[in-house]
Every structure is written in C-alpha cells, then in structure tokens.
Design a protein around this nucleic acid. Structure first.
Length: 274
DNA sequence: GTACGGCCCTGTTAGC
DNA sequence: TGCTAACAGGGCCGTA
C-alpha cells in the first residue's frame, strides 16, 4: 500500500526516464478511474513531482498527469515497448493503463484491486480531486512547523489517527506510517486532542518514519514494488504496524490492535496511554 | 464545514 | 479437499 515513501521512491526512479519523452499513444482499462490516462496522448513530460501520495507529472501543454496508486498500483517502464516478440508480462491481466513513449518504451500502470486512479488536469487545479485539493503541507516542507501542525489538528476532534489518514493535517501519511509515527511519539491513536508539545513530537516522529521509509526504499508487505520491480526493505524496520501481540520494543508489553474508522490500528497500551 | 457509513475491488486467509 | 465468508484499506460520495 503505497504511502509517501513508496510514491517518492517511484517518482525518483521514473522522473529521469520520463522527462523529455513524448507520449505517442495511450490506452486504459474502461473504468472511469483509468480512462483519463488516454488524455495524455501527444504530450511531453516536463516535470516530475509529488504531493502526499499523488504523483504529479507536468506536461508541455499546461496540464498535469496525476496518478494515485491506491492499494496495489504499480508503475514501471518496459524497455520493449509493445514489440509482440517479447514475452507477455504475467501481470498483464491487471494492466489498467499504458503510455507508449517516443523511444518505443512503454510506461505501464498495473493495479490488481483498482483502488488507484488517474487524472489529467490543468496544472495546479486540483478542485476535482478532493483529497489532493484539501491536502495539508508536505511533511518535509521546511516552512511547515509544529505550531501550524497543532493548529491543523485542532480543527477537528476526531481521533488523531483518523485525522492523519485524512491527509489534512499533513500529506502523505497512510495506515502503516501513522501507526509507526504514533508509536514513536507515544501517542494513543484514539486521542482526540493533543497539546502543542505532543504535536511537535508527532511531527518529528512523522518525519523520522517517513524519512526512514524513503531511505529503505519503501515498505513491502505484499504488493508494493518500486518502478524497477524491486521490493522495499522498510518492513524490517516497522515497530508497530503488523506486530499485534508481539512485545513492544520499548517496554516489552504486548502490542494491541483495534479498529478505528474501519482501519486497523496497532499500538502499545503501556507506552501510548490516552 | 464536519462526522460518519457505505462503496469500490480482488487475492488471500480463516473457518467450516 | 473444497467451498464460503471475512479481511485488507485510500479515497470518494451521499446523508445527517
């Protein structure tokens, strides 16, 4: 399930391959989630970017190709283009979109569960993409400080984990890194209000876990692969997510899990008291 | 504006 | 062994 570190890893890999390349043909699965991929025909990639979990590729006609990987989305570049002599990819049943480049290579988007989505919009106009439109600051933005973070958290009284997953206080945190950051900052995922000091701790923790995730090439629990088909290593660095029943690495008490807003949260009942 | 439930999807796993 | 149901979950949408 790609979150900021996974999306950033893919951006860094794809950017140099795509910038300056022109799309000569594009196709997609019939679902409306993917048909906008076809709108990026005849354009040249001019820029690679990311906002939270959204990949944003600048195009030379003043628009942007926006890709969200959902749960199981994968982007890759096939060197063979659509040369029929090349053996078919066994995952082609899940090919949801493709872009044939002017050097005959093929940018492919696979997505088993079809939770991802693709859009082409005027540059900077995200009004048709609610989560992107209302996304909070980038966690590594140097102008984003803990005071702003605390103010954003104070706008809602929903549980802190729900707020993080909403992308509004800060962009790019999903279920895995939310559990990790809350564990690191010793904050209970059901807490509805935290003080400025704890908000500062949480922002620091978010930066630590996301930074570590990027360094480790992302977290692969099952599906995630980077643009070169490789698994990440960050699953070996997880302290909370997926460790329910196992001892907390700080206090040795068994980690617990609970469902908050239809998502599993794993936390330490001793370290992360309310 | 905010909160909340339901839906989209399909491979994997648990239970019978 | 084979079938069925539950589960995973990010984002969107309708309703309150």
């Amino acid at each position: 399930m790609p979150e900021l570190p996974e999306v950033e890893t893919i951006r860094r890999q794809l950017g140099p391959e795509l910038i300056g390349r022109r799309v000569v043909e594009a196709g997609s699965h019939p679902s409306a989630k993917f048909t906008p991929a076809r709108d990026a025909t005849g354009v040249e990639f001019t820029e690679d970017g990311r906002r939270g979990k959204f990949l944003i590729f600048g195009l030379d006609d003043g628009r942007e190709l926006i890709i969200h990987l959902g749960m199981t989305g994968r982007l890759a570049i096939r060197s063979s283009g659509r040369d029929p002599s090349v053996e078919e990819d066994p995952d082609d049943a899940y090919l949801r979109a493709w872009w044939l480049l002017d050097d005959r290579r093929l940018l492919t988007y696979h997505d088993v569960r079809r939770f991802g989505r693709i859009r082409v919009v005027s540059a900077g106009d995200y009004s048709s993409i609610p989560t992107l439109h209302t996304a909070g600051p980038e966690p590594f933005d140097e102008t984003f400080d803990s005071e702003q973070f605390w103010q954003r958290l104070a706008r809602s009284r929903r549980p802190i984990k729900v707020q993080l997953l909403s992308q509004r206080p800060v962009a790019g945190v999903g279920n895995i890194y939310a559990d990790e950051a809350l564990w690191l900052a010793k904050i209970n995922p059901k807490a509805t209000r935290i003080g400025k000091g704890r908000a500062a701790d949480l922002l620091d923790a978010i930066r630590v876990v996301l930074g570590r995730g990027i360094e480790n090439g992302g977290t692969t629990l099952r599906d995630y692969r980077d643009a070169e088909g490789r698994s990440g290593d960050n699953q070996n660095a997880l302290e909370a997510y997926g460790r329910v029943g196992r001892p907390c690495r700080r206090c040795s008490n068994a980690l617990r899990s609970t469902v908050i807003d239809n998502r599993v949260a794993t936390w330490c009942p001793h370290c992360q008291r309310r």
